[in-house]
Design a protein around this nucleic acid. Structure first.
Lengths: 248, 248
DNA sequence: CGCACACTTGAGTAATGTCAAAGAGTGTGG
DNA sequence: CCACACTCTTTGACATTACTCAAGTGTGCG
């Protein structure tokens, strides 16, 4: 079993530059994120308790069991969420893309670790300060509940995949999920981009790296997809993949 | 693949008997449930939008894709939540016990089906009326968010189990979960009680019924447990089971 | 250019699934 | 109360999927 890569701790954030009391105004993922719950005029209240940060690949954002002191909104890059067994086996429970949210916790502790796969930019909110904001802005809390409900629905889809789908069905589901989440159509002009390694795909689907590789080779031979590069996928026969995946 | 059992639709609820404006006062699971968020004096507001109902085994409470018009609090019995693939393969995403909550939905639709395993009693809340109550009682919304966060953490544990644990590890984790959730110690005097069939255990753990049966037989031969009846389990060597399960 | 690293491919194995049959438990009607 | 029927569970023999181990092939970076 592979030893997990050592990573450095999270650096201190740079505070928002002074004189700019509404850095969120220019945010490109605002409509997707937590901040969408607030009006333009209230945004500075959120901005005041948040800082924007950028980290390099392999940097850890949160570790399983840590005090859940922060909430995160990803603005750029890809993050993986994962859990480990004592012997090092890893299960990736989700990938986060721009606009996605991270940090809901039960009993004040994160239930999973989060690591940047690519260079990642995010807004980080202080949980205790945010809790106070929730009293003033019930819409914010309703938004959080909506986010949590969505995540729950996705988690259930993933349980169906992990428990009952074959390797081929898992890969088909994964590729369609990536198409949906990235917004890339998977055409020859705009192929899917896979920021994660084969190992990470395997750890997400409950497979080994060899099985992932073999199924992708199968799919290529069956003309279901093409791979102009190791991390580029063209979906040649989307209906067939959708049939394989069984559900969206 | 087995054909799914036909079930009858949910009967109409009996409204709370007139003259009793606080039926929740006597509720035995109140401290566990949604209602715990409200003070004694505000409970009638919740009671006014809820009805208590009892259904028989195999009755469907909600079906995947249905409009999420209701929220449920289980007061007695066991419920299974599950999703199906088009060919009938089933994944049980969770079991609900007294005090548990059901009905959070993304995009206004249930993401899963729910079926009574035993005779089940529950309180059913009208979602639209509850939404209005949320405005008056922000504590209620905070409670919902807490419930959702807990469910999310459990879902991630289950993904780790489904994706990365062996059959033996899955069964060990399952039995310990049942001990924790039921509050039964699993001693010879108070053995675990399993309200679900082997098929349902298998569909929860991503295994087949035969594998579940074989692993239970193994465990018995290894003196990890005893089975005074098909649905009664005595945990003879809990530390060994905990080591197998890897995590709580 | 050469060293890492990630990915692919191949051969053999192990864990789990499938198919089949027998045993155990439960309810019903005679 | 017993016999029968039904369902659920267990067990056995065999099949198959996915895993393990190992070697080989890119691919990118210093």
């Amino acid at each position: 079993m592979k030893i997990h890569r050592l990573t450095s701790p999270l650096p201190e954030p740079k505070p928002a530059p002074p004189g700019n009391d509404n850095p969120c105004a220019a945010c490109n993922v605002r409509v997707l994120s937590l901040c969408d719950a607030l009006d333009e005029q209230d945004l500075p209240r959120l901005a005041a308790i948040s800082s924007s940060m950028t980290v390099r690949p392999h940097q850890i954002l949160v570790a399983e069991g840590d005090n859940a002191d922060y909430l995160f909104n990803i603005t750029d890059g890809t993050v993986k969420l994962y859990k480990l067994l004592p012997d090092g086996r890893q299960q990736i429970t989700g990938f986060l893309f721009p606009g996605d949210f991270l940090g809901l916790a039960a009993a004040g502790r994160y239930a999973y670790s989060a690591e940047a796969i690519t260079k990642v930019t995010f807004c980080r909110f202080d949980r205790r300060k945010l809790d106070k904001l929730l009293d003033d802005f019930p819409k914010l809390e309703r938004r959080l509940l909506g986010i949590a409900s969505n995540e729950l629905a996705e988690a259930q889809d993933q349980m169906l995949l992990l428990g009952r789908k074959t390797a081929r069905e898992k890969l088909a589901s994964f590729l369609l999920m990536m198409a949906r989440r990235s917004g890339l159509p998977g055409t020859p002009e705009q192929p899917l981009e896979l920021p994660m390694t084969r190992t990470e795909i395997a750890d997400y689907l409950g497979l080994t790296i060899e099985t992932v590789s073999r199924v992708l080779t199968q799919f290529r031979k069956e003309r279901l997809l093409a791979m102009p590069a190791l991390d580029r996928i063209v979906l040649l026969d989307r209906p067939a993949l959708e049939r394989l995946a069984g559900t969206v």
